[in-house]
Design a binder for these strands. Structure first.
Length: 356
DNA sequence: TGTGCCGGGAA
DNA sequence: TTCCCGGCACA
């Protein structure tokens, strides 16, 4: 939050606080309603860091120390790296259970999020070591925890990942029990089988290069390489089919403006992090990478469209920003304190002070 | 109807 | 570049 302030995204943001601060020293008391995010804070802060006066004027005060906004960055508290190995185990266990009780996953998106084992390998997994399959045989059956699972061509993020990204319930298409047709999404394959297990085997053998279709070695990865062509069975496929009817050759390189790793400071509204109401803990995700990554030279299964936050997608119409629900200057300060507004608001531009 | 802000124009 | 506003979309 504060971090944004100093970097003063727009021309708009920097200025008004200056003015306001300079003009009415009592501005701080404005401490208005203070909604959850606390506009009051928001408002007060800019005044401090911004005015040069504060910097220069405070010689020994050392006041500069405390306000260090960076200190707030919650990074450390959040992740608890210590027992990583153990964590993995736990995650693996959780994943196992969730896999076996698949439908329940719907109810626990958050869990699926961080623990989703089958996603993990993709980001790391280099190209499969062709000859070195030996290590893979590890007796373990933790298909999930088995990071070393030899062959993961690290496909582009599976469609589900998009859902993860956007906080949708993780619809895991576990369809082994359904019947219908299953089409291999592997590039230039497009093979259609009538059973999920058959398809999985096909993928394991043919595409993943596993010597034999040992199901227990499967980490569920195959799921992402085929899709179900059934009619009206699976809500997921329903939704997806609308997007790209499973033509296996229609490569869809996810061409999205990529957020830089260091996203935040500038032009927040331009980058338009699509106003996601509950951005779940994205921090631990390999997610973004998955989205952009055409990365792999390997034949890629066609991702059934990832990363698209379900826009209404009118061809001609420019997508108007969905209007955040945050209170903006106008509302907060009212028409009669227009001078307290951020410049953007004054100019009827996207508010820079109360970002969504 | 009020609000947010895009698009565009004037200074 | 700064400032302003018409006008549209949305709540």
């Amino acid at each position: 939050m504060e971090a944004e302030r100093p970097s003063a995204p727009g021309p708009g943001c920097g200025r008004p606080p200056l003015r306001a601060a300079g003009r009415d020293p009592a501005a701080a008391p404005v401490s208005v309603p203070a909604p959850p995010q606390g506009p009051a804070v928001e408002f007060a802060l800019p005044q401090e860091p911004e005015p040069r006066a504060a910097d220069l004027g405070a010689p020994g005060a050392g006041a500069a120390g405390p306000p260090t906004p960076s200190a707030h960055i919650p990074v450390p508290g959040h992740r608890a790296p210590p027992g990583k190995a153990r964590l993995d185990e736990v995650m693996a266990a959780a994943a196992l259970t969730s896999l076996s009780t698949s439908p329940l996953l719907l109810g626990a998106p958050a869990v699926a999020f961080s623990t989703e084992p089958s996603l993990e390998p993709w980001r790391e997994a280099p190209v499969r070591p062709p000859g070195s399959g030996g290590s893979s045989g590890d007796g373990g059956w933790g298909p999930t925890s088995d990071q070393s699972s030899p062959s993961t061509p690290s496909p582009p993020l599976p469609p589900e990942a998009a859902h993860f990204l956007f906080g949708e319930p993780a619809l895991r298409k576990r369809k082994s029990s359904l019947q219908g047709l299953f089409q291999c999404l592997w590039k230039r394959c497009g093979k259609v089988l009538s059973s999920a297990s058959g398809m999985q085997r096909h993928i394991r053998l043919v595409h993943l290069g596993r010597r034999q279709a040992e199901p227990e070695q499967s980490d569920g990865e195959e799921d992402f390489y085929y899709t179900e062509l059934d009619v009206g069975v699976d809500s997921l496929t329903d939704g997806l089919s609308g997007l790209t009817p499973g033509s296996p050759t229609a490569s869809v390189p996810p061409a999205f403006p990529r957020l830089e790793p260091l996203e935040p400071p500038a032009l927040p509204s331009l980058l338009r992090p699509p106003a996601l109401p509950p951005p779940p803990v994205l921090s631990s995700l390999p997610a973004p990478q998955g989205c952009l990554a055409p990365v792999h030279p390997e034949p890629q299964p066609i991702p059934v469209r990832a990363c698209a936050p379900a826009l209404p997608a009118k061809p001609g119409a420019n997508p108007r920003k969905p209007r955040g629900d945050a209170k903006k200057c106008r509302k907060v300060y009212g028409m009669d304190h227009r001078d307290l507004w951020c410049t953007a608001c004054r100019w009827k531009k996207a508010c820079q002070r109360f970002l969504d």
